[in-house]
């Protein structure tokens, strides 16, 4: 592991009676440079609308900002409550990819870059003959998280959670 070794020295004098005394002192400081900068990526979640309709997709956007000085590989996962399900359509910086956000999608973000993950979710049909959805008339909350392995000695997975986003289903 790399170290910063820094020394400071001084020579000084004082007198005892008629005698002048000269002495020297020094100090050495050693600090370890950790090559890994364990700065968590930033994760922000927004929704394009404040409310959703049953059986109609709701689109959300998660922004992952790589604040580390290295590329961060991570798994992106989305969670909804009340039977809301993410759609398989996912766009990363407007480029479509395929994945299951409930199980997680592997992505990476470069140093200083921001990844824009657009994904949809829907409250599914209740399998009635007409697939008629009933309004929930209540609030639904979505939350995303990323899991990554920071560059550290332990190399233990670390989770970063987004802000929760709530919307009403009409």
């Amino acid at each position: 592991m790399k170290e910063i070794i820094n020394t400071a020295t001084a020579t000084y004098q004082y007198t005892i009676g008629t005698q002048s005394i000269t002495k020297s002192i020094g100090t050495r400081n050693v600090v370890v440079i950790d090559p890994c900068h364990p700065e968590d990526p930033l994760l922000r979640l927004t929704t394009m609308t404040a409310c959703a309709r049953c059986c109609q997709p709701l689109w959300l956007v998660a922004a992952v900002e790589g604040v580390s000085d290295k590329t961060t590989h991570f798994v992106f996962t989305a969670d909804f409550d009340k039977k809301y399900r993410p759609l398989p359509e996912i766009f990363v910086n407007d480029v479509p990819i395929v994945g299951d956000l409930r199980r997680g999608v592997s992505l990476c973000v470069g140093a200083g870059q921001t990844l824009r993950i657009t994904f949809g979710a829907i409250f599914p049909c209740d399998y009635s003959p007409c697939c008629i959805c009933k309004p929930l008339c209540e609030k639904v909350t979505a939350l995303t998280r990323i899991c990554y392995i920071p560059c550290s000695i332990q190399r233990l997975p670390k989770y970063v959670y987004s802000n929760p986003v709530s919307f009403k289903v009409l």
């Binding site: 000084y12 370890v32 440079i33």
Partner: peptide
């Protein structure tokens, strides 16, 4: 009659430090 000096040098920034980080040293005589 004694005028002994001591010198210490510490990094006020918690260790370890990272590349790109601005750190602060303090020397006390």
């Amino acid at each position: 009659r004694n005028g002994d000096l001591t010198i210490s040098k510490v990094m006020l920034t918690p260790s370890p430090v990272y590349v790109g980080q601005t750190v602060t040293y303090q020397i006390t005589i």
